[in-house]
Computed example of a mutant assay.
Amino acid sequence: MGDEDMDVEAVRKQLSVAVSQQLGSMVSLTVLAGSLRGAAYVGLKLRLREFAVAEVTDTERLVEMFCALGGQLQPMEVPPPPSTDSATALKEFIERDKQVMASLHAVIPHSGQEPQSEALEHLVEHVLLRKQEQLDFLLLAQD
């Protein structure tokens, strides 16, 4: 296998981890959007709902790419429910989503330089960009 070829096995392995975590992130964000309490979080809940819709779209696209590469989805672990303290719940989501982003980023070195590789890399980069914007917003909201 040349330097420009996709390491399909490594991509499938890392993407399996990332997709599993992304599924958890999608569920966690949806639950977080519905469970935040307090007047300080009313406006944030509306934005979280927008992010949750984007998470569904990103997750579907990642699953589609993973399956196109011959990956087989593993049973999903349901994330723990958020803390009843809204500030803590938000902080915990942010920390988990940083891990999701790291797992997604770890796919890129194995993607290679062929056309399908470029499509995968651009998809992952798109998801990372959107999630970074989401993270930046949530970090500001946390202050």
Rank of each mutant, 00 (worst) to 15 (best):
Q72D: 09
E64I: 00
S86M: 05
Q72V: 15
M65Y: 05
I94T: 11
M76T: 13
P81S: 11
K91D: 09
V78R: 07
L90M: 10
C67D: 02
M76H: 09
L69S: 02
E95D: 13
A89G: 03
S86W: 01
L62G: 01
E64H: 06
L62E: 03
T84Q: 11
E77F: 10
V63W: 03
P80F: 00
A87P: 04
A87Q: 13
P81E: 10
E92V: 05
L69K: 01
A89S: 01
F66S: 03
T88A: 02
L73Q: 09
M76S: 14
M65V: 05
L73N: 00
L90D: 03
T88Q: 11
L69F: 08
P80L: 09
L90E: 01
A68N: 10
E95A: 15
A89H: 02
A89P: 09
R61F: 02
P80G: 05
M76V: 14
A87W: 07
A68S: 12
G70K: 07
P75N: 09
P75R: 09
K91G: 06
E95T: 14
E92R: 05
C67P: 01
A68K: 12
Q72G: 00
P82C: 12
E95F: 13
T88L: 03
M76P: 00
F66M: 06
S86H: 01
E77D: 11
P81H: 06
E64S: 11
I94A: 11
P82W: 09
V63P: 14
I94E: 11
S86C: 06
S83E: 14
T84C: 08
F66D: 06
S83Q: 08
M76E: 15
Q74K: 13
V78C: 06
L90P: 06
I94D: 12
S86A: 07
I94M: 14
S86G: 04
P80Q: 08
A87T: 11
V78G: 01
V78S: 12
E95C: 12
Q74G: 03
D85M: 06
V63D: 09
V78M: 15
D85G: 00
E92P: 10
P80D: 05
S86D: 02
G71V: 10
T88R: 00
S86L: 06
E92H: 12
A89M: 03
R96L: 12
R61P: 07
D85S: 06
E77K: 09
G70F: 05
M65D: 04
R96N: 13
I94L: 13
A89Y: 03
E64V: 01
E92Y: 05
P82R: 02
A68M: 08
V78K: 06
F66T: 04
D85W: 01
R96D: 15
D85T: 04
I94R: 10
V78I: 15
E77Q: 13
T88E: 13
E64F: 02
E92D: 15
L69Y: 05
A87H: 12
K91T: 13
G71S: 04
E92A: 11
C67G: 00
I94P: 02
P80S: 08
P79H: 08
F93H: 15
F93E: 15
A89C: 04
P81L: 15
M65H: 03
S86I: 08
P81A: 14
E95Y: 11
F66V: 05
